[in-house]
Simulated assay, not measured.
Amino acid sequence: MKRVILSAGLISVLAACVSAPTGPTVAVMPRQGKPFEVFQQEDQQCREFAANAVKDTSNAALKDGATSALVGAALGAAAGAVIGGGSHTNVGTGAGVGLLGGAGLGAINASGKENQAQGQYNIAYQQCMYAKGNQVPSYKGN
């Protein structure tokens, strides 16, 4: 029973590591002459627009992380049983090792999707702010 609780706790910790973008990581400036209060309203509207644009991507990152941990635990339990010659004594150890490995792989996969979600959030935010007449700085490519 302790192993089940520990496993559930580890999956919860993994799930807590994955988060949706909370704001843009790009700078946008109001156009000259625009009141700051109007800029703040547009910023809030565009944050909501961008959050809705990446909602599915953020949820996918969370699901992938938890799924990898569960699959790892199941495979580890099976491997523990096979290695132990069918004995149930190694099933828990195998499940624990599999859970740790699955959680690690899940964290790596989720991190990549989280970065992808932040990039998509930034693009949606910039598009919205640009459409409202704000200045979106660009950078020169190599």
Score class of each variant (00 low, 15 high):
1 M>F: 05
1 M>R: 02
5 I>S: 09
8 A>S: 05
9 G>Y: 14
10 L>E: 12
11 I>V: 15
12 S>K: 05
13 V>A: 10
14 L>I: 12
15 A>L: 09
15 A>K: 11
15 A>G: 15
15 A>N: 13
17 C>A: 06
18 V>P: 03
20 A>R: 03
21 P>L: 07
21 P>A: 10
22 T>V: 14
25 T>Y: 01
25 T>K: 15
28 V>C: 03
28 V>R: 09
29 M>T: 09
36 F>E: 15
36 F>I: 06
36 F>Y: 14
37 E>M: 01
38 V>A: 13
38 V>Q: 13
40 Q>V: 06
41 Q>I: 10
41 Q>K: 10
47 R>F: 00
48 E>S: 10
48 E>L: 11
49 F>E: 08
53 A>Q: 03
53 A>N: 05
56 D>T: 08
56 D>F: 11
58 S>T: 11
59 N>Q: 11
60 A>K: 07
60 A>Y: 02
60 A>I: 09
61 A>Q: 06
67 T>G: 01
68 S>V: 06
69 A>F: 10
69 A>G: 06
71 V>A: 03
72 G>F: 11
72 G>Y: 12
73 A>L: 14
74 A>Q: 02
74 A>K: 08
76 G>R: 04
78 A>P: 09
83 I>L: 06
84 G>H: 06
87 S>F: 00
88 H>Q: 04
88 H>F: 11
91 V>K: 00
92 G>F: 10
93 T>D: 00
93 T>Q: 08
93 T>E: 04
93 T>L: 10
101 G>A: 07
102 G>E: 00
103 A>C: 02
104 G>S: 05
107 A>F: 12
109 N>M: 09
109 N>L: 12
109 N>E: 06
110 A>K: 08
111 S>I: 02
112 G>V: 04
113 K>S: 07
115 N>T: 10
116 Q>D: 13
120 Q>A: 10
122 N>P: 08
127 Q>N: 11
129 M>E: 09
130 Y>I: 01
130 Y>D: 15
130 Y>H: 10
132 K>V: 03
132 K>Q: 08
133 G>K: 11
133 G>H: 01
133 G>T: 03
134 N>D: 05
135 Q>E: 15
136 V>D: 05
140 K>N: 09
140 K>V: 14
142 N>A: 12
142 N>W: 15
142 N>F: 15
